[in-house]
Amino acid sequence: MTMLTAAPLDGATEKLALLRRIFLTGGSGYVGRNLIRYFSRRDVEVVALVRSAGSAERVRALGAKPWLGDLLNPDIAAGMAGCDVLIHAAADTDHGPGSGEQTRVNQEGTRVVFEAARAAGLRRGILISTESVLADGRPLVHVDETAPLPRRPAGNYSRSKAAAERMALAAGGPGFEVVVLRPRLVWGRDDTTALPQLCAAARSGKFAWIDGGGYLTSTTHIANLSVAVELALRKGRAGEVYFVSDGEPVAFRAFVSRLLETQGIVPTGKTVPRRLLRVVASLGDVAAALSGGRIKPPLTLQAYATSAVEITLDIGKARRELGYALVMSREEGLAELRSGQHW
């Protein structure tokens, strides 16, 4: 198995001579937990923002120093004292009809966090965003960072994360550089998001392939994302956005089938027409809007846009400018899930 040890970063020290202390939001979440493990193993101190005693214990057990605070409170600048950089991994990732709370967390929370980091004297901030900022329900085929944001996003998750990118980048300036990373379909060890949901759907009999599931998708193993974060901290150009992934795309059905098989689940052969699902998703959004959120639709356009069409990314920019290279192949990641061994 490939060891998760980044290759020498060449001129990386030109950007950050010393990376000693990181302020991390979302530390108790899936991505955040793995970033704590990654940087702690490199003797980088991580201060993780937490909202509860339970979260504080979880991040402390992983090797981080918890700091009790609120994403929406500018006072979090006090917790950033002595830190070099910010990694903003906290987000409300719900793909339902959306809510005011999601907007506050993703949009206003990002503004508060990045302005606090600038006020605290941090040198650089990384926003972990998503390819979903481009989602409108149509395929995204080999898109790169020049693709414009859609006029009508698929849903509130896409809308609020696009706003978060604007907020983060607007906070940048002399002395405080901001870089945005956009991974797609993060997976791998310790997954408490996509994989448990897929398993629950499969076990309940509610899972079916959309038009057979043969369309392509990009994916991003958590080990590859962790390396991309370090590279962005050290080498990313201020004000720039970078897509990252596992490289070559894979058929959605083939990948999800193998993910489920690592958990002892034999995927279903059921399939549903894409056109039908698109209608169901559109009607669900209308019903949720007209009811003021009281009706919870079985499918939203946001969820449809994430899983029903091709989404493939061009990561050439990250390779050229960051020196991004994979440290975990899909085969290795799947073998890790089957064996229970972790990088």
Rank of each mutant, 00 (worst) to 15 (best):
A305C: 10
A318S: 09
G98D: 06
Q341Y: 09
G188F: 03
L277W: 01
R182N: 03
G213Q: 05
A223N: 10
A251F: 06
R184A: 00
G247D: 01
T193I: 14
G316W: 06
A238S: 15
A223M: 07
G205F: 09
V59H: 09
R60P: 09
V256S: 02
Y38S: 00
P153F: 11
A223D: 10
K317R: 15
Y324S: 03
R152L: 11
V50G: 04
A89H: 00
D43R: 15
A305T: 00
A168F: 05
A202G: 10
E165A: 07
V229I: 06
G340Q: 06
P97M: 09
E321L: 14
A171V: 10
V180A: 02
F23D: 01
F207I: 10
S204K: 15
F255R: 05
V85A: 13
R104I: 05
R338G: 05
V47E: 08
L122M: 12
R118I: 09
L233A: 07
G100H: 09
L198T: 02
G54C: 09
L18C: 12
R278C: 08
W187L: 02
V309H: 02
A117P: 07
A116E: 07
V141A: 14
L18M: 12
I128E: 01
F207G: 05
T130P: 01
E248N: 12
R123N: 07
A232Y: 03
R111D: 04
L231N: 03
G293L: 12
L337V: 02
L198C: 08
L169K: 10
M80V: 10
L334P: 02
T25I: 03
A48C: 10
V180T: 04
L127N: 02
N224A: 07
G292L: 13
Y242H: 04
E321K: 10
A162Q: 04
M167T: 06
D75K: 15
L290G: 08
S132I: 00
Q197W: 13
T13D: 15
T268R: 09
V112C: 08
A287G: 08
S282D: 11
D92W: 01
S204L: 12
L313N: 01
E14R: 13
L16Q: 08
A81Q: 14
A223I: 02
I210R: 00
V229Q: 00
K65N: 10
M80C: 08
R152N: 12
S226I: 04
L326N: 02
C83Q: 07
Q197P: 03
P148E: 15
A81S: 15
V50N: 01
H221D: 05
R111F: 05
E240P: 06
P273D: 11
A6S: 13
V244S: 00
E165Y: 02
G293W: 11
T130I: 00
I311W: 03
P174Y: 15
T13N: 13
P148V: 11
G239N: 11
P174M: 14
A335W: 11
L134V: 01
G213D: 04
L231H: 05
F207A: 09
P297D: 10
L301V: 14
G32S: 02
K270L: 13
T312Y: 05
L195V: 13
L283R: 12
P196W: 13
L35F: 01
G340Y: 01
G32P: 01
L35A: 00
P298M: 12
V250S: 09
R51I: 06
R33T: 04
V31W: 03
G214W: 01
Y242C: 03
P74K: 15
A7H: 14
L313R: 00
A281V: 11
